[in-house]
């Protein structure tokens, strides 16, 4: 589904990503764990084309995407849910969903607003409310719903639990599990190991722009040494 090899990225002269390599298979939930500034969000931005990598190869369903514009990547079926939510606060819930709308994708059941409202019942109760008048947890759900309207085959979730109350984080766990059941691939970046352990199949640990560890989530959970070295828990 998604394959990254030898990815390097710079901000100005600062080297942010060094030879990052990772994969995500169809229907798999993969987590990229690391502290703030380790390169998680930068990796996500490279994948969706918001930041142009200096070198490396990104393939999505076998097609090279590392030189494409964000909209072209999104149209291929890679959905992006940014950190810090970034909903359109002046637009209503329905209008936010409209912005994300793309044609159905063969082999996947298409998302409609109604079908999303069964996944996020809260949103269905506030269809005409402007995004700016929703709580943080509702906004986070709306960003995910908005991305799903594009009928992506794979979703990038950048720090979905950051700044949310524990009860909302528990809802997020349920949501990601349902997406997996729909057959979607999910690549999420996280700092919260407890949260990652509840949803992810496999994990990559990133530190100072390099992948330091790769393995199943359960193996990582048992590997005290890796956790102590890179995650400092």
């Amino acid at each position: 589904m998604l394959r990254v090899d030898g990815l390097n990225a710079h901000y100005g002269r600062a080297h942010i990503l060094a030879d990052v390599a990772l994969t995500a298979a169809k229907g798999e939930v993969v987590v990229l764990i690391g502290r703030n500034g380790a390169g998680k969000s930068t990796t996500m931005k490279c994948l969706i084309g918001l930041l142009r990598p200096t070198s490396g190869e990104i393939r999505f369903e076998e097609k090279r995407i590392d030189r494409l514009a964000p909209h072209a990547i999104a149209r291929l079926g890679l959905g992006y849910v940014p950190e810090e939510r970034r909903i359109f606060t002046d637009l209503t819930v329905m209008e936010n969903l409209e912005v994300g709308k793309r044609p159905p994708r063969p082999g996947l059941q298409p998302w409609t607003a109604e079908r999303l409202f069964t996944l996020f019942p809260n949103l269905g109760e506030m269809r005409n409310r402007p995004g700016g008048r929703m709580s943080g947890g509702e906004q986070q759900m709306l960003t995910i719903a908005r991305t799903l309207m594009g009928n992506p085959a794979c979703v990038l979730l950048d720090e979905p639990s950051e700044g949310l109350a524990p009860v909302i984080v528990e809802q997020m766990v349920e949501t990601i599990r349902k997406l997996k059941l729909e057959g979607l691939s999910v690549l999420l970046s996280e700092q919260n190991l407890h949260f990652a352990a509840l949803v992810a199949d496999r994990a990559y640990v990133i530190e100072k722009g390099r992948i330091r560890y790769e393995g199943t989530m359960s193996a990582l959970a048992e590997d005290e040494a890796v956790r102590a070295a890179y995650l400092s828990v």
Binding site: V167, E170, N192
Partner: peptide
Amino acid sequence: QVYLGGGSTFG
């Protein structure tokens, strides 16, 4: 009920 939930997402 209103905030902490079941406690599964923190240590």
